[in-house]
């Protein structure tokens, strides 16, 4: 992380809590870049997170109010805080297991209400902290500690889910697309209403080592190769789309 962003970190925080090669460190940096670009004041922000690796992006690292809540409940806690103090820029940062699995109901209902929250979902396709169990976002066939012969269930398309529930702003980028991702986070912080950014991140420790991505670089390369734009996707056949993920903005201003 650039030295210029250290002003956003708690002085007593000495290092990131993430495994070597984890994509969440990149995301942590990009969120602070977006905040810095917008010149937001940390004393006018609230960061809410649930349980899991991604919940450690803001907590305890960001030098603002950080609220580390129960597993799955970050959006519900944030809803209460935002209702009572609407001036607070309230950002939820948590993982796929937290936001979309155990907390899935809160996510869709917050989107339906279109409450003015920013939700950043760091999707690493697995339960990282507990040791690599299959998540609701694990790809078909993924090897995890609970699917040793391959995951048999389809993953969520989180962006479609949240659009269907009525969110104002929905985007998906990978940590390998930092410039677009910073712009998306900035929009998610400035737009009125419920904003959701799905960030494709990497978990070399739990996902990579079980699925033949032998180094953190291999995982980043995989993301780089699989992420394509809507325009690129239109030119591909269904066979060619296998293993690809469409990134971009899917909903802007409630349209």
């Amino acid at each position: 992380m650039g030295r210029d962003l250290e002003k956003y970190l708690r002085p007593e925080v000495k290092s990131t809590p993430f495994c070597p090669g984890c994509g969440h460190g990149i995301l942590m940096n990009l969120i602070l870049r977006a905040i810095d670009d917008l010149q937001l004041r940390m004393d006018e922000m609230l960061f809410v997170s649930g349980i899991g690796c991604a919940a450690w992006i803001p907590s305890p690292n960001f030098n603002a109010d950080t609220l580390h809540t129960l597993h799955g409940r970050a959006v519900a806690f944030a809803t209460g805080a935002k209702m009572f103090n609407p001036k607070l820029k309230t950002m939820v940062i948590s993982g796929d297991g937290d936001l979309a699995s155990i907390g899935g109901n809160h996510l869709i209902h917050a989107a339906r209400r279109n409450i003015d929250l920013t939700v950043i979902c760091a999707n690493n396709m697995i339960y990282g902290m507990t040791g690599g169990q299959a998540a609701s976002t694990s790809p078909l066939g993924a090897l995890t500690s609970t699917t040793t012969e391959g995951n048999i269930y389809r993953p969520f398309d989180l962006c479609k889910l949240v659009i269907g529930a009525g969110a104002s702003y929905v985007a998906r980028y990978s940590v390998t697309q930092p410039v677009s991702l910073i712009e998306a986070i900035k929009k998610s912080l400035t737009i009125e209403g419920f904003a959701f950014v799905e960030v494709l991140s990497t978990c070399p420790t739990q996902f990579g080592r079980r699925n033949r991505y032998d180094s953190p670089t291999d995982m980043l390369t995989m993301l780089k190769e699989s992420c394509i734009s809507k325009q690129e996707a239109e030119k591909l056949s269904p066979e060619e789309m296998q293993g690809k993920v469409i990134t971009g903005e899917f909903s802007y201003g409630g349209t």
Partner: peptide
């Protein structure tokens, strides 16, 4: 559902 420190029970069963 996974939760530390229980998770290795359900991993072992899987």
């Amino acid at each position: 559902y996974p939760i530390t420190p229980q998770t290795t029970i359900i991993e072992e069963l899987a």
